[in-house]
Computed example of a mutant assay.
Amino acid sequence: MRSVTKNHDYAPTVLPDGSWILFNAETASTVVVTPPAGIYWELCDGVRTQSAIFRTMCQLYPEQSSETIRTDIDRMTEQLADLGLLQVGTFLSVMEA
């Protein structure tokens, strides 16, 4: 199973329009993301699997098809990882450890 963990060097701020600013004080870098991307980033705590995050996003956006949400999650994962905002890894279950 895949795990995704947000880069904790970034501090989030949610703007009145719902977009998110992710700011890294150490590097003074700022990234602005859409509301769904900000929520997704926040859910990437390293504990939840992408499957669990997918289920949560489906509950938060019931007007979207599950296919659309799955595609958006894959795209957001790639884009946020490319920006250094996410680390993608593999979960080891208790049975595998």
Score class of each variant (00 low, 15 high):
residue 76 M to K: 09
residue 27 T to D: 06
residue 87 Q to P: 00
residue 47 V to G: 10
residue 24 N to M: 03
residue 84 G to Y: 02
residue 90 T to G: 01
residue 59 Q to G: 01
residue 82 D to Y: 05
residue 17 D to R: 04
residue 20 W to E: 08
residue 56 T to G: 00
residue 30 T to P: 00
residue 63 E to S: 14
residue 24 N to A: 02
residue 8 H to T: 13
residue 14 V to P: 04
residue 34 T to G: 06
residue 96 E to F: 01
residue 52 A to N: 07
residue 62 P to I: 05
residue 52 A to E: 15
residue 94 V to A: 15
residue 68 T to G: 00
residue 29 S to H: 13
residue 67 E to K: 14
residue 81 A to I: 07
residue 44 C to P: 00
residue 59 Q to W: 09
residue 44 C to L: 01
residue 62 P to Q: 02
residue 90 T to H: 06
residue 76 M to N: 10
residue 34 T to N: 12
residue 1 M to P: 07
residue 74 D to W: 04
residue 84 G to H: 04
residue 41 W to C: 02
residue 12 P to T: 03
residue 11 A to E: 12
residue 27 T to Y: 04
residue 89 G to K: 03
residue 12 P to C: 05
residue 31 V to A: 04
residue 69 I to S: 06
residue 72 D to E: 14
residue 20 W to I: 07
residue 45 D to H: 03
residue 30 T to W: 02
residue 51 S to G: 15
residue 30 T to F: 03
residue 86 L to R: 03
residue 83 L to G: 01
residue 47 V to Y: 11
residue 66 S to P: 01
residue 50 Q to N: 12
residue 13 T to E: 08
residue 61 Y to M: 13
residue 2 R to D: 10
residue 57 M to N: 03
residue 11 A to V: 11
residue 37 A to M: 06
residue 39 I to Q: 07
residue 88 V to C: 13
residue 33 V to G: 01
residue 1 M to D: 07
residue 40 Y to F: 10
residue 48 R to P: 03
residue 28 A to R: 12
residue 14 V to D: 03
residue 70 R to G: 11
residue 52 A to R: 11
residue 77 T to N: 08
residue 65 S to A: 06
residue 97 A to C: 12
residue 70 R to L: 14
residue 36 P to E: 09
residue 36 P to D: 03
residue 51 S to N: 13
residue 48 R to A: 12
residue 7 N to D: 01
residue 34 T to D: 15
residue 30 T to L: 13
residue 63 E to L: 12
residue 75 R to V: 11
residue 75 R to S: 13
residue 17 D to G: 07
residue 33 V to K: 05
residue 96 E to R: 07
residue 87 Q to R: 15
residue 90 T to S: 06
residue 29 S to R: 15
residue 15 L to V: 00
residue 59 Q to P: 00
residue 48 R to N: 09
residue 38 G to N: 09
residue 50 Q to C: 13
residue 95 M to H: 03
residue 15 L to K: 13
residue 2 R to E: 13
residue 24 N to P: 09
residue 27 T to A: 14
residue 55 R to T: 10
residue 56 T to K: 08
residue 92 L to C: 05
residue 70 R to S: 15
residue 90 T to W: 09
residue 19 S to K: 14
residue 39 I to C: 09
residue 49 T to S: 15
residue 94 V to S: 15
residue 83 L to D: 05
residue 75 R to A: 15
residue 43 L to A: 04
residue 5 T to C: 06
residue 49 T to Y: 04
residue 41 W to D: 01
residue 42 E to R: 09
residue 22 L to H: 07
residue 70 R to W: 08
residue 5 T to F: 08
residue 94 V to R: 14
residue 83 L to E: 05
residue 10 Y to D: 02
residue 78 E to Y: 11
residue 29 S to Q: 15
residue 93 S to Q: 08
residue 46 G to C: 02
residue 80 L to E: 02
residue 41 W to S: 02
residue 54 F to E: 06
residue 59 Q to V: 00
residue 66 S to M: 10
residue 59 Q to I: 00
residue 28 A to T: 09
residue 7 N to H: 04
residue 66 S to D: 11
residue 13 T to P: 01
residue 60 L to R: 09
residue 10 Y to K: 01
residue 89 G to R: 05
residue 5 T to E: 04
residue 32 V to Q: 14
residue 2 R to S: 08
residue 2 R to N: 11
residue 80 L to Q: 05
residue 77 T to C: 09
residue 38 G to W: 09
residue 78 E to T: 15
residue 77 T to M: 06
residue 93 S to F: 08
residue 65 S to Y: 07
residue 55 R to D: 12
